[in-house]
Simulated scan of single mutants.
Amino acid sequence: QMVPARALRGLGAGIPAQIVYERVRPEAGQLVQSHSTELNCALRKYTINTPVRMATFFGNAVQETAWLRVTEEINATNRWYAPWIGRGFLQLTHPSNYLNYWHWRGRVIDADVERRLRQAQQQANAQRSNQPLQEVETQLPRQIVVWRTDIAIKKYDSADSAGYYWSMNKANREADVASSNTRHPFTLHTSSEQWPGQRFTFYENVSFRRVSCLINLPGHINRTDPQLNGLVDRYHAYAYAQVLLLDQSIFPDASGVMQFLPENYHVKDEEPR
């Protein structure tokens, strides 16, 4: 129910001029059935245990997993941080985040290997090139590579790493701050698969936006216009999660009257309402 039949996608960071509305792939939602036990355990373990916290978590996780479809970042092999690409339900990315998670798990990591990885990350970040990381890659112990892959392929690791990252960034603290949904009408881009050139609506929410920045772009947390990847998509996912979990009329219509469903809500293969 948190995966719509059609979804918004912003073509650019933040709230871009080009926003499209398109059908999600048939595999969307498949991670729910296969990972439900591990997800529930992670939610309980990391106290993501209120409707608002869960809605905020899934508003991000649904988008980061391409609508609950994959646990590894798509088309990322040439990214400047590859092969330390996003994995898990909150797309753990960069050597430092993997290393910190493994320390959390109590795993022993050779100090020299860790030093070289962190140094290579700094160089890759400065150069916007993954060459420094690739140079270290050939010298990594096999166990490090296995652990890294496990974040995507082991159900426990995919869910637990997300709960860890959420907790490490104190996302519950931001999610718990009461914040209302603000209606944001706009015109779909002419390249949109569905409804090109027509009016549409998504809902902004300050607390959710701040959590999204904590997860993906912490340097922009205090900006009202964060240049966050997939921000519009996340807002769209968050609205669906709120419908499922909050059970309240919290979406204002054009007149300011609160509605139970957001405008253009669309789960089944029918015309949006």
Rank of each mutant, 00 (worst) to 15 (best):
P185A: 13
C213L: 11
A126H: 10
W147K: 11
A239F: 12
Q131V: 13
V136C: 11
D253G: 03
R148C: 13
A237Y: 04
V232S: 02
P226L: 11
R183P: 00
S212N: 06
A159H: 04
A178T: 15
A254Y: 02
F251W: 11
Y240L: 04
Q248M: 15
T224P: 07
I151E: 03
Q123D: 11
E204D: 08
G219M: 10
A171Y: 02
V146N: 08
L245E: 09
I144E: 02
S255C: 09
P196V: 06
F251D: 00
S207I: 02
N216I: 01
M168D: 07
L188H: 01
D253V: 06
S180K: 08
V243H: 06
S129M: 07
Q248T: 13
A241C: 15
E204R: 14
S158Q: 10
V177Q: 14
E193W: 14
S255A: 12
N222G: 15
E135L: 15
N172H: 13
R173V: 14
L245T: 10
A254L: 06
V145W: 14
I153R: 11
T224L: 10
P196K: 12
H184E: 10
P196T: 14
G230A: 05
Q198L: 12
N205P: 06
A152K: 04
I151N: 07
Y164W: 15
R209E: 02
Y203M: 02
L246H: 08
K154S: 11
M168P: 00
Y235I: 05
S180V: 09
K154R: 12
N172Q: 07
R183L: 09
S212I: 02
K155D: 13
S249H: 11
R210W: 00
Q131I: 15
T187V: 14
S161F: 06
V257N: 00
A254K: 07
L133Q: 01
L140S: 03
E135W: 08
R183K: 07
Q123C: 05
L133C: 12
L217S: 06
A175S: 13
I144P: 01
P196L: 07
N181G: 00
L244S: 08
L140D: 06
A237W: 02
V243Y: 03
L244R: 03
E174K: 04
H189P: 13
E137F: 12
F200Y: 14
V146R: 15
A124M: 10
T201Q: 09
L231K: 00
V211D: 01
V232N: 00
Q134S: 05
S129C: 08
V136G: 06
T190P: 00
V206P: 00
V146I: 15
S180E: 09
A241P: 01
T190E: 10
D157E: 14
